[in-house]
Design a protein around this nucleic acid. Structure first.
Lengths: 339, 339
DNA sequence: GCAGTGCGTGAAATCGATTTCAACAGACAT
DNA sequence: ATGTCTGTTGAAATCGATTTCACGCACTGC
């Protein structure tokens, strides 16, 4: 391992000069050239640990996500990674498994490693505590989920709008008994999607002159995982008057819901399914699935951008960027065949 | 940020003693207790950067994979992560996009960050150069793919066996014109799977008294991605005598192949499809897909174990662990209906 | 010719932990 | 009383880079 002193000695200059060559200090062209050449000869690469210690900041950003096996988050991670690469930051990917304790451990590591900044998709709206980092002046950006009371930059999805879009599409397709499989109660993303669903249904009831509220029986809460979706869908199908369509609040639960539908031998387009979030590849084997597309990659990219601004020292006021969803209609035949 | 000196001062001891308390040196019980208490009061957590610099080794391992969006690798990553957690190592996940240059950059970072070790699923059999790290004495474990000439521990999948299993199953199900969509030429994993396919077909031809070689037209090379699978399948279907089944050498290409089949309105069980590697969730919407299950999680877990042995300083001789695949039969009706 | 300015340079301090080394205290044997 | 040994302790060196500071030199303007 060649150090900066090795290079300095070989090039006949001081370590300070070598450092300046690589960090944009003022050095005469001729010396700089000589240093660069000897450095290349010796295969010198600065020790990033030493650099981090001295600078009190590593060239690493943390990305803390709740589920690495969910394509939504891997896509987000790619966005972060691509953006980070442009400024030579590396990304440490941490998977919390929706577990607040695991998450806290990672936040502590981020502090102890003196990471340049952290992007967090919080495991819990209430119990995730970002003050640990924000308090030490470490730049933090919340993404997808904003923990309560955290004063940090954020990049969010317009969940309510997505929920409205989805529900409106199902209505427009002719379905009338539309259920909703929401996420865990308390999850902000889920609440907002549900709010969108409710708002559209209420409007529709009013217009139809029926007034009142959409049936509370048609709303089930899952856990954002496959099994939760399956269970909720099974319950819905067992109702005295089962729904004829369902809006599912995330991609994994959609997979579960589809499985339950298949077991019950209920198929689109008799039964409408609209997924919030892309179910990757499902489109290939089940083209009739309409989805609310989430800007996952852009979410990551944007969050990384905000973070880098902060790292660079910008002190604009706190900012929340909201990205829109886009409905991707894939139904070949749209709407129920018989009514 | 409280440092070790702050704690030392507050507890009325030297920094050396504080360090010993946290690193298992000999300290009298009473002092140790006092130090621990003051440390807790001050919220002291050792600065990992400083520790890494002094120890010449970080408590971080690198995991370098070619495609973070492939569930095979995310599952592998979980295996690594879970194993690493047990010894308080954190994992840095690096995505190379199958790009050798990107990969080299990450290998250099691993060196400059003084990572404790690296697990690599190499982007290229020929061009991935692990000597950079192995030469500096950094522990390295190859996983899934073993780069040529690298003298490192390795954890592999028994690809040939998996290929044999897959092909034999298709034969046993009654298919006779079995094609293969292999991976890129030169990729060791692909070559081995293909070898398994060829071996079984040759045996079958011999037994059937026909002798000779399986038709070379039935072997196509893809790029391990969705589009490659789709293109290859389309070509196969366009042959004068198209196959009646296909063995696809990885999960993503299977997705592409399924899409091509759907476009051509060819459906199982008239056409047999066997995927090497699980196509997540596809089972739910297409239960008839039989797959060769890869031990992705175990691959990661095992690799992390080997790496930790090396980090701890074991100097047993180089070791290659080969994990078996398992056929997961999901066909409801098995085999072609008409012949 | 002299003060003032600016640039390039190297010596040395610095980041925060670990670890070596020497000193010291106390127990015990000679 | 002296020597030996064991077990604790703190001062100081160390890891490898960055950065401050002061110095020397060359110019400029008066």
């Amino acid at each position: 391992m060649t150090t900066i002193s090795d290079v300095a000695r070989a090039a006949g200059v001081s370590p300070a000069t070598v450092s300046r060559v690589f960090n944009g200090g003022r050095v005469t062209a001729e010396r700089a050239e000589r240093v660069r050449r000897t450095a290349a000869e010796l295969g010198f690469a600065p020790n990033r640990v030493a650099r981090s210690l001295r600078k009190q900041r590593a060239s690493v950003i943390g990305l803390i996500i709740p589920d690495i096996e969910n394509p939504f988050f891997t896509s987000l991670a790619r966005g972060v990674e691509d953006a980070a690469q442009e400024t030579n930051l590396s990304v440490v990917l941490c998977n919390t498994d929706e577990d607040v304790d695991k998450e806290r451990r990672y936040l502590e590591i981020a502090a102890a490693e003196q990471m340049a900044g952290v992007i967090v998709a919080a495991a819990s709206r209430n119990r995730t505590d970002l003050s640990l980092l924000a308090g030490r002046g470490m730049p933090v950006v919340a993404v997808d989920r904003r923990p309560r009371g955290a004063s940090v930059d954020a990049v969010m999805v317009d969940n309510q709008h997505g929920g409205e879009e989805a529900t409106a599409h199902l209505l427009a397709s002719g379905y009338r008994r539309i259920a909703c499989i929401a996420g865990p109660e308390g999850a902000s993303t889920s609440e907002e999607r549900l709010a969108g669903y409710r708002a559209v249904l209420r409007d529709q009831l009013r217009e139809a002159g029926e007034g009142g509220e959409p049936s509370p029986e048609y709303v089930r809460h899952g856990d954002f995982r496959v099994e939760g979706g399956r269970a909720a869908m099974t319950e819905l199908l067992a109702l005295p008057e089962p729904p004829d369509a369902v809006f599912v609040a995330n991609n994994l639960m959609t997979v579960g819901a589809l499985a339950a539908l298949r077991e019950a031998a209920v198929e689109p387009p008799d039964f409408g399914v609209l997924s919030f979030g892309d179910v990757p590849w499902a489109s290939l084997v089940r083209p009739s699935l309409t989805t609310v597309q989430l800007p996952s990659y852009d979410l990551g990219w944007t969050a990384a951008g905000l973070l880098q601004d902060r790292i660079a020292g910008t002190d604009r006021s706190l900012q929340t960027v909201v990205l829109r969803t886009a409905l991707q209609v894939r139904e070949s035949t749209s709407g129920p065949v018989t009514r």
